[in-house]
């Protein structure tokens, strides 16, 4: 199976979109070689804005340019784009309901050796609470292309969460706002996941299958709005729910799922980054250390089900 990091796909997707939509412009804060927006920059130098290391200004400028019919994609590391420029995202982009797309990379801990300062474990929480913000978290190249295309079609702010670590490329499936994708059918427990955790959840399901535990996996690529109907129906069908995310267990996908289920009283376990920051290491090592590789996920699910 071919592997692509969603950050690489992001660059390709922006270029592909730029080819068919001349209103698309891209903003960078001196990291285009790492976020891969340089793929767009090379193809469309006149529609690429280098803003320097100034995320707050970049965000406000993007809001301004959108008033003239442009569709700005603002891109940097998730930790800086959602954290450093939070008030600009909140009070200018979201509050002003500007047509600004926030396409960020290096989300979660798999950013790797740069360490905790560069690893965003809180971006979903920050973006979820903003009224009107839509959140997409693609798991592979196809979903990234679809997410970028969808974001451009939607009016208003959208946050797209991409990763640095290569992940498997799956077959394309329909991708809509508020949609989801059933990756695996199963009857004992359902894993709700997205992004880099889709492939790790598949690995976990294989391990669990050998132990007689049959997992369903649902890819909730649209974190907001969430496909609550599918969440409820799979939760009811399986009777046990696990959320698996490369994000803090506070405020991310687990929160979204439990919100959708809070009226039905179904037991739920949250797997994600516990109450701690990331750290330096290789992506695979970090996933193992944080219990977020297939093995770690399987162990946590099994232990919980046995309780």
């Amino acid at each position: 199976m071919s592997m692509t990091a969603t950050r690489v796909a992001l660059g390709d997707a922006l270029k592909a979109l730029g080819e068919v939509n001349e209103k698309v412009v891209v903003f960078d804060a001196d990291v285009a070689s790492a976020t891969y927006t340089q793929t767009f920059a090379k193809a469309f130098p006149d529609r690429f804005y280098q803003m320097g290391i100034a995320e707050a200004n970049m965000t406000g400028v993007a809001a301004g340019i959108s008033e003239f019919g442009f569709i700005p994609f603002v891109s940097t590391f998730a930790v800086f784009g959602t954290g450093r420029a939070y008030d600009q995202v909140r009070n200018t982009v979201a509050y002003g309901h500007y047509n600004v797309k926030l396409a960020m990379t290096h989300a979660g801990i798999t950013g790797g050796p740069d360490g905790g300062s560069h690893q965003s474990i809180e971006d979903l929480a920050l973006m979820r609470v903003l009224p009107g913000m839509r959140i997409l978290c693609p798991c592979d190249s196809a979903e990234t292309h679809q997410a970028i295309k969808l974001a451009a079609e939607l009016e208003g702010p959208v946050y797209i969460r991409c990763s640095r670590m290569p992940t498997p490329d799956y077959e394309e499936h329909p991708f809509v706002l508020g949609g989801s994708h059933v990756v695996r059918e199963g009857k004992d427990v359902v894993l709700f996941t997205n992004g880099t955790m889709v492939s790790q959840s598949i690995a976990a399901a294989k391990i669990l299958a050998e132990k007689g535990i049959d997992c369903a996996i649902v890819n909730l690529y649209s974190v907001k709005p969430l496909d609550e109907e599918t969440v409820r129906s799979y939760a009811q069908k399986c009777g046990k729910v696990v959320s698996v995310e490369e994000h803090s267990i506070y405020g991310g996908l687990g929160d979204s799922v439990s919100m959708a289920l809070s009226e039905c009283c179904i037991p739920m376990k949250r797997i994600g980054v516990q109450d701690k920051f990331g750290g330096s290491g290789k992506p695979e090592e970090l996933l193992a250390a944080y219990g977020l590789d297939g093995k770690g996920i399987a162990e946590q699910v099994e232990t919980w089900l046995k309780k």
């Binding site: 954290g83 740069d114 905790g116 300062s117 330096s280 290491g281 090592e285 250390a289």
Partner: peptide, 28 residues
């Protein structure tokens, strides 16, 4: 340096490394 579990993080971390006076990594 930069390895998992190390006190020497990819960017300065004052709670991990003796002698480091402030965290760094997020510029400015």
């Amino acid at each position: 340096l930069r390895q998992i579990g190390s006190r020497l993080q990819g960017h300065p971390d004052r709670s991990k490394t003796p002698g480091v006076d402030a965290c760094g990594g997020s510029l400015g």
